[in-house]
Structure formats: C-alpha cells, structure tokens
Amino acid sequence: MQNQPSPMAPAPAAFAAGRTVIASASDLPDHAGHAGHAGHAGHAGHAGHGLHAAAPPPGQPRFDPRTGQPLDQVDAKPAAQTMFFGALQQQAVAPRLVVIKGEGGDGVTFHLSGTTHVVGRSIGDITFSEDVFLSPEHAKFSVQSGRLFVQDLSSTNGVFIRIKRPTPLDHGDSFLVGEQLLEIDSEPLPDYGPNDQGTFFYGSPRPNGAFRVIQQLAGGGEGLVKSASATTMSMGREGNDLDFPEDRFISGHHAKLDLSDDAKVLLTDTGSRNGTFVRIKGAQELFHGDYLFVGQQLFRVEIS
C-alpha cells in the first residue's frame, strides 16, 4: 500500500493502492465533475491518501477523513497542490462505498479506486475519527480484478454484512438484529455424567433447545440468554420466541434461526425492514447492493 499516485496510469487497477475518493452522492453519475482533486505530491510514502473534494459544499465532509484536519486548511494552500485529473481517466468505475448512516453526512461516497483501502478510526485511508466503535485500523477493502473483498483487521467490533439469503452460523458467530448484537451458542450441551471425582453436578434441568442465543451488551458483558424451542427460534419486536419490544429498529417478525441438517444454525431474515447482519470471518467478497456495518457506519456497496 505504498505507491505514488500515478496520473498516467490508465486503469484503476494500476492506481495507487488505497486511494480514496470522496464525492457527494449527487456527483456519482458524473465522475468528470471531480475537478478539484488535490494530490499531495510532496508526501511521498503517503501513498493512498486520496483525493479530496475541494471546497466541499455544505453537507459535505469538512474534515479530512484520514487526518482529521479541516479540509479548509488544505484548500487554503492551493499553491502546494498539484491538480490531478486521474479520476477523469477512469474508464471502469471503481467500487464505491456509500455511507447510508454514519459520520460525515449520509450519502457520502468513497470510491475504492486503488487496490486496498483501510478503514479505521485513526489509521487508514478512510477514517471516521468520531466513531468509537471503530478500531484504529478496522477493515481492509481490496479490489482484485474488478472484484471487491473486505477483510476484518482483527477489529474489536468486526464487520457485519447484511444477509440476502439463509446463512449458516457456527457456534460463536455474531449477528445483528435491529440494534441487538446476538451470538449463537450451538455447542452441544455436555453429556450428563460425573466429573473426574465421580460427582454429579446438581444443575437445572436441561432445556430441550438445540442452541441458544446470547445478547452481547454494549460496553461488554452478556445480557439475555435464550434457549431455542426445540430446533427453532424466531426473533422480532413482538410475538416471537425472542422479543425486543424496546428496540425501534427491529421489525415485528425480523429473523429466525433454525437448526440445519449439518448441525449448523441457519439465520434467515423474515422480511425485516432494516435487515439482518452477520459478522464476517476472514475475507469476504462483496457484491453490488451489499450493506455493511463497520463500526457505526452503514455502507452500501456499489460496483460498476
């Protein structure tokens, strides 16, 4: 992720890795509108600091998402800036992250025109300095042959992707339903038997549910734990096995879990309004129309 912006590079793939382009949503269709990009030519090694929309209109980011410096100051030194028209040369449109909900105004678009882009609170190409749920270096977006991938950089809170079809979960996987962060506990209950001293544990009767859901509280700690009824559990605001009546972002019948044949638990969104998100593991390919939660930032992925 070093590389100097190379104005002459003809294709996005050859661009500096990690370049980030901010544009307003209204600019989207017309990339020729990005006239005022400023390249920091003097900062060799600062590869990938992207191009900032000059003099953002009201509602646009007023701070450099990477450095947190007010953009005005940057613009105050026009002499030091070299005009860069690389964006004009982009033939193929780079994948974009559109902020649906988050810091810096909704509708902001980040063009992922390099090969890698790191998102974080303080380090990286795209930063949201006020999102305390972001790790300093949180996630990495990579573009490979026109395909976009996201990878969790061992962040505290992870990256969540909205599910579009029933998704199998393993023991310990996390998912979001409304504002609820839930974890699946599908490890079989231990066999009932004596310990190594021959003593039996005098515990509660065992539930018949095949798995459990554990609510993870903000700030840490486990809250509600609910056992499935047999092999299934429905979740929502009311009338489900597991209800969160106080959660304004949850739908009446939001999602459900079912034990599948291969002993995994299948998470299905049951027509919720805000969607159901699962935490990704490792790297995962993204497609047009995917939604991602990274910290408190909700992005829509646009490709092509």
Partner: peptide, 9 residues
C-alpha cells in the same frame, strides 16, 4: 480505546 459495540444497555 475502542468501545465494545453491542445491544443497548
């Protein structure tokens, strides 16, 4: 310095 995300407490 990252805060833990989670269900509202």
């Amino acid at each position: 310095g990252t805060e833990r995300m989670g269900s509202p407490n």
